[in-house]
Simulated assay, not measured.
Amino acid sequence: MFTISCSEMKAMDSYAINSIGIPSIVLMENAALKVLKNIDLEKIDSFTLVCGVGNNGGDGLAIARHLVLANKAVDLFIIGNLDKRTKDFNINLNILNNLGIDFIHITKDEDLKKLKHSLNISELAIDSIFGIGLTREIEGLFRKTIDIINKYSKDIISVDIPSGLDGDTGQVLGISVKAKKTVTFHHMKKGLINSKEYAGDVIVEDIGIPDKATKMVLGIE
């Protein structure tokens, strides 16, 4: 199976955006739509989404918007320092604000009780806390959040990679979401190959990054 490292994926993403001219927000929207493609919306009506403040979280916000517009019951949680949110995360958050879609910002243990309650009543949890850029050990409120997701979710789908998994090695960085399905983008990441316990069934989806980006990064003629 063809696999790529996280640094190669970032370089391909960057080439598509900066050299080919595909707006990054377009790739984010494509990613969200491809995750939705892998959810049975005919059968599932209630969702808990947990998003970080980076671009993986931005994917989650876009997913949340589409679910709300499809008249699904959506509880949206955001964890992380909102002062450090990325540009495309912020674009999607502003859209949600303009639509009047609320979220709970996980900043204290009390908020985790709300997350636990949501997971107890929803049919599917969507994990978009950390993407492939994570390299540090997870601790504190993030660790507690992932522990609650694992303990109380009926079903979990992870966006690009389970939060807490090293995208290159498959090492668990202290704790990791245990997804039943992971929708990863463009090409299979090396760290997902032998990580079924955490990634579940891995689906690779095209989000519109041209082959030219792959070939340029890998030096393929």
Score class of each variant (00 low, 15 high):
9 M>V: 06
10 K>M: 13
18 N>C: 07
19 S>H: 15
20 I>C: 10
23 P>S: 10
24 S>D: 05
25 I>Y: 07
26 V>W: 14
37 K>T: 09
38 N>E: 13
41 L>W: 15
42 E>G: 11
44 I>F: 05
47 F>C: 07
50 V>M: 01
52 G>N: 05
53 V>N: 03
55 N>F: 09
59 D>W: 04
62 A>H: 03
63 I>N: 02
72 K>Y: 00
72 K>M: 04
77 F>H: 01
83 D>F: 09
85 R>T: 10
91 I>A: 10
94 N>K: 15
95 I>W: 10
97 N>M: 12
102 D>L: 10
108 K>V: 09
108 K>N: 14
114 K>D: 14
116 K>T: 11
117 H>T: 14
120 N>V: 10
121 I>P: 02
125 A>T: 08
129 I>T: 01
132 I>W: 06
134 L>D: 02
136 R>T: 09
138 I>V: 11
149 I>P: 00
150 N>T: 07
150 N>R: 02
152 Y>A: 09
152 Y>S: 13
155 D>M: 15
159 V>N: 01
163 S>K: 01
164 G>S: 05
167 G>C: 12
175 I>K: 01
177 V>Y: 02
178 K>D: 07
179 A>Q: 06
199 A>H: 00
200 G>I: 07
201 D>G: 11
202 V>N: 00
206 D>H: 14
207 I>A: 07
208 G>R: 11
210 P>Q: 04
220 I>L: 10
